[in-house]
Design a protein around this nucleic acid. Structure first.
Lengths: 166, 166
DNA sequence: CTCCGATTGTTTGGATGCGAATCATTTTCA
DNA sequence: TGAAAATGATTCGCATCCAAACAATCGGAG
């Protein structure tokens, strides 16, 4: 939604289109800026941190979740990362081919697949995540540090609402 | 990033992995909840409003931008919507085939293509956007209305930072 | 007037992501 | 015990999206 028109201009124009209706501009501002912010931050992190390692966003999330929780079942990776099992299968194959992680069959339950990082994968994350977090910090600090806790909480609340009201 | 573990659990686990490093958990919470919120809200709006009209997210954005600013040049639609020209070409073809908008060649500049909604498209948006905004309102109201202005402002600030620091 | 670089939309090729169907394994319960 | 249901991961087909190459057009330098 980033464009040549400011939000104020857009709101004025929308208002002209909908004088007779009852439009909640403040709610519109919240959601549209939510999408703009998420997109721009993701692009920023991809460019400044992930691109030089040739990692897609999803690939990084898979590595990160695995790194934190390994050994971990694939279904948990998908749940934590918020993407489908089908997507995960492809990404895991790519990362396994690149030697960053390995798949093992579970001994207790033959349907499950367990994932662990390789030493190469761990070494990568040891340097990559601090770099990632450094950029996260720069992004977050564009709002006052004292306000960041409340902001994160509000976003959590929004998530909870949107997920429960399917 | 929605998963069986709470953010607090994840942070504790990350802390164990990184006791010796200097990780900014508050910044991590801001960005990760930003992505979770944006994804869940988008899914919510797609399910509750867009699915019954068989519109993709991008298709809706194109219709919305066109509806507000028509007649509008395609390059402006792409800029406002935040996606590439290539993406726009495909979506425009789909929407034109469905009779919701039309493309015209500009008379002043033969390179430009001008887009307008059809009456059918306008009629659709006359009912669709109020329904969309109603859900936006429900989402936004999960935080106190008096706090929504500040929230939108903070998101704007984050966007500005992430876009400027390419 | 004539190039030649810049701008714009489209096409092409490839990456990504998902839902549905499929296959393998485990669990359930009659 | 054994057949059916349930649970996982994978495969397949499809939609979406983008960067790069391409064709058409514009505009300015000479």
């Amino acid at each position: 939604m980033a464009g040549p028109h400011t939000l104020a201009e857009t709101e004025r124009q929308v208002n002209q289109k909908l004088v007779h209706k009852n439009i909640n501009f403040e709610a519109m501002a919240v959601t549209s800026n939510l999408f703009r912010a998420a997109n721009s931050v993701r692009n920023h992190l991809e460019r400044t941190v992930l691109a030089k390692e040739d990692l897609s966003w999803t690939a990084f999330v898979v590595l990160w979740v695995t790194w934190i929780w390994e050994p971990i079942e694939t279904r948990q990776i998908a749940a934590e990362g918020g993407f489908s099992k089908a997507t995960l299968t492809g990404v895991l194959s790519t990362l396994e081919k690149r030697g960053l992680l390995v798949r093992k069959k579970s001994k207790e339950d033959g349907r499950l697949v367990i994932v662990e990082l390789t030493n190469k994968g761990r070494k990568l994350m040891d340097t990559l995540f601090p770099a990632f977090n450094k950029q996260e910090t720069a992004v977050a600090n564009s709002v006052a540090p004292s306000k960041q806790g409340v902001l994160a909480d509000q976003l959590r609340t929004i998530t909870k609402f949107a997920e429960s009201n399917s």
